[in-house]
Nucleic acid binder design. Structure first.
Length: 408
DNA sequence: CGTCCACAGGAATGACGGGCGG
DNA sequence: CCGCCCGTCATTCCTGTGGACG
C-alpha cells in the first residue's frame, strides 16, 4: 500500500497543472488582443454612467470567447466603480429565464439565495436595486443557446431598460451555434445583435504559440519537447481548432509520461494520449446526463453497432443513420433490461434535440422525405466509446441523486 | 386521388417539491 | 402544521407534413 507521501514525491513533469486547465485565464491571451479591445470598447460606457450596447459573440468551441470576456471582466471589476457591475451566467447550468434571473438576483442580493420566490418578485427586486443604486449592469450570458425560453428572457431584460429611471441593463451573449439565431423572434434578435463579433478558429501556428505559452507555466523546464508541442498543435488544428482539446491532449500526454516514470513528454506520449482524450471528452458530458438520456445514447450506440432494421446499406447516402422510431424501440428494450419505466416517445423527440445541443449526436432533416418529417440520427463519437462509457456509468451508478424515484 | 404511415412538435394537464404566509 | 403559489418535468392529445400505396 503506497502512502500519500510516496505518491506525492514521485517525480513529475508538471509544474502547475492548473495552467493546462481550460478554465485557467492567462495574463495574456495571444491572438485575441483586438477582440478584447473591442469588448472593452463596447462595455466601457458602463464605467461612465452610460448604457453600453448589447453584444453578441459567436465562435466555435475553444476559440477563446469565454476566456476573452472573463479577461475583460477582471479588468472591469478592477476599476472599482461602484455603479458599474458585471455578472457572469453560464446558461448551461442556468438554462431557463427563471434560473438566469434568479442567479443574477442572488449574485448581488445574497439574501435571495433560495428558491421558491416567484419570477416577478425576483425581477422587481432586481430592478429596484438597479434603480436605487443607479447601476450599469452588464450580464454575460455564456452558452446562451442553451436557454430554453430565450425569447422571454431577452424580452424581460430589454424591457427592464424601459422601466428603469436610473441605471441600465446590457447583455453580452456568447454562443458557439450560429443556427440558433434563426429560432429567435425578430425583436429579441435585433436587441441582442446590436453589436456582433466573430471569433475565428485558431490556426495551427497560433495554437503552437498558445500551447507553448501554457506549457511553459504548466510543465517543468525542458519537460516537453518542441516537437511534441508542435504535434499537439497540428493534431488539434486538424481536429477542430479547439484550444481546449489541445490543452487536454497536452495534459494527458504529461500524465502518461508520469505513469511511465519518464522525465520528458515526447511525440510518442502525444500519440498515446490522443486515443484516450476523445473518450474522456465524451465521458465527461455523458456522466452529467440523467439516466434515461444515457439509455437513449446506449440505444443509439447499439443500433450503430448492430445495424438497423430499416437501413439498407447506402440507401440514404450515409449508411450509418438511424430513425427515431427504431431508437425508441431499442430504448424501450433497454429500459426493460435495466428495469426502468420507459418515457414516452414524445419525450424522446425533445431529448434528441437536447443531445444534439450537447454535440453528442447529429440530427439532420431527411428533407425531401423518406417518411414525411423524419430526422437522421448520427453519433458524434465512436459508438464503441459511447457504449463503453455508458455501460460503465449504468453499472456503477449514481453517487448523487440516487434517492430520486425512478419508476412509478 | 385519397388514405395511411412514421414522424415533428405545439398545447394542455397533472404530479411533485420547495418555500411562503398564516 | 396546512393550503397555496410557483417552476419543472413527463404524459397525453393533437395537428401537420409528405412520400408510399392501393
Amino acid at each position: 500500500m503506497p502512502s500519500f507521501d510516496e505518491i506525492l514525491s514521485k517525480p513529475t513533469v508538471f509544474l502547475d497543472r492548473d495552467a493546462l486547465s481550460p478554465n485557467y485565464i492567462p495574463e495574456i491571451l495571444p491572438f485575441r488582443e483586438k477582440e478584447i479591445e473591442k469588448i472593452m470598447k463596447v462595455i466601457s460606457p458602463a464605467l461612465n454612467d452610460q448604457q453600453p450596447h448589447n453584444l453578441f459573440i459567436y465562435g466555435k468551441t475553444g476559440t477563446g470567447k469565454t476566456a476573452s470576456v472573463k479577461h475583460v471582466m477582471v479588468k472591469f471589476i478592477d476599476m472599482g466603480k461602484e455603479t458599474a457591475k458585471m455578472c457572469y451566467v453560464n446558461c448551461r447550468m442556468y438554462n431557463t429565464r427563471y434560473r438566469v434571473v434568479q442567479k443574477i438576483a442572488k449574485t448581488f442580493m445574497p439574501e435571495l439565495n433560495k428558491s421558491g420566490f416567484g419570477l416577478p418578485f425576483l425581477y422587481e427586486k432586481l430592478l429596484k436595486w438597479i434603480n436605487k443604486k443607479k447601476i450599469r449592469l452588464v450580464i454575460v450570458l455564456d452558452e446562451i443557446d442553451m436557454v430554453k425560453d430565450l425569447d422571454d428572457l431577452l424580452y424581460s431584460l430589454t424591457r427592464a431598460n424601459d422601466e428603469l429611471k436610473n441605471g441600465s441593463v446590457s447583455m453580452i451573449g456568447i454562443s458557439n451555434k450560429l443556427s440558433f439565431k434563426d429560432s429567435l423572434d425578430s425583436r429579441s434578435k435585433s436587441s441582442l445583435y446590436e453589436t456582433e463579433m466573430i471569433f475565428a478558429p485558431y490556426t495551427a501556428v497560433q495554437l503552437q504559440v498558445i500551447l507553448k505559452q501554457r506549457a511553459v507555466i504548466g510543465f517543468k523546464k525542458k519537460a516537453v519537447t518542441d516537437s511534441a508541442i508542435n504535434l499537439v498543435a497540428a493534431v488539434t488544428a486538424q481536429e477542430t481548432g479547439d484550444a481546449r482539446y489541445g490543452l487536454r491532449l497536452l495534459l494527458r500526454a504529461g500524465e502518461i509520461s508520469d505513469d511511465k516514470n519518464k522525465s520528458k513528454v515526447t511525440d510518442k506520449e502525444v500519440v498515446d494520449a490522443r486515443r484516450s482524450v476523445e473518450e474522456d471528452l465524451a465521458a465527461e458530458i455523458i456522466s452529467t446526463l440523467p439516466e434515461h438520456q444515457q439509455l437513449v445514447l446506449l440505444a443509439i450506440a447499439n443500433l450503430m453497432l448492430e445495424g438497423s432494421r430499416y437501413r439498407k446499406i447506402g440507401e440514404y447516402g450515409e449508411n450509418d443513420v438511424l430513425f427515431s422510431g427504431e431508437v425508441y424501440e431499442m430504448y424501450e428494450k433497454l429500459c426493460k433490461k435495466y428495469s426502468k419505466h420507459p418515457r414516452t416517445s414524445r419525450w424522446l423527440r425533445d431529448y434528441l434535440n437536447d443531445l444534439e445541443m450537447l454535440g453528442l449526436i447529429t440530427l439532420s432533416a431527411s428533407g425531401r422525405g423518406v417518411r414525411g418529417h423524419t430526422r437522421f440520427i448520427k453519433l458524434g463519437y465512436p459508438p464503441e466509446s459511447i457504449r463503453r462509457v455508458v455501460l460503465r456509468l449504468l453499472n456503477k451508478p449514481r453517487m448523487f441523486e440516487s434517492h430520486k424515484m425512478t419508476g412509478r
